[in-house]
Amino acid sequence: MNDPSERLPDESLDELLAQFRAVDLPKEMRTANREAVRRALARRDRTLWWRRSVAVPVPLVIAASLVLVVTAAASLWPILDGSATRPDTAVLGRNGVVEAGAESPGWSVTRSFILSIDSLSRMDDSFCPDLLEDRNDT
């Protein structure tokens, strides 16, 4: 309390201020204050839940916003970059070897299917030589 701004002005002025501190308000105003609070509380209780607001700490809001922005950027980046429109060009080649740079995925799928049938028929020949011999006999 040694700070001059902490001290009250002087004794005479402090006396005046003390009188002013004793100012009280009439009963009607007290009633009006209570009525105002009662009305405001009733209004607040009637407010629908989705129109109510809550206090959220600013750092939390900033962190949540950053997470949202980063997530959105990460999911939108391939589209904006154009890489998402490019088809997967690594497809099976003639001998089951992965070839890069094939142009049509649809064609590649069909081709892979045909190649797989072809390879299955060769598997029959190699795993069941008796069958092949029977066929030759007939």
Partner: peptide, 10 residues
């Protein structure tokens, strides 16, 4: 004062 108490409730 009445206005202020109303605002305080909010």
């Amino acid at each position: 004062s009445v206005d202020c108490f109303g605002d305080l409730v909010e």
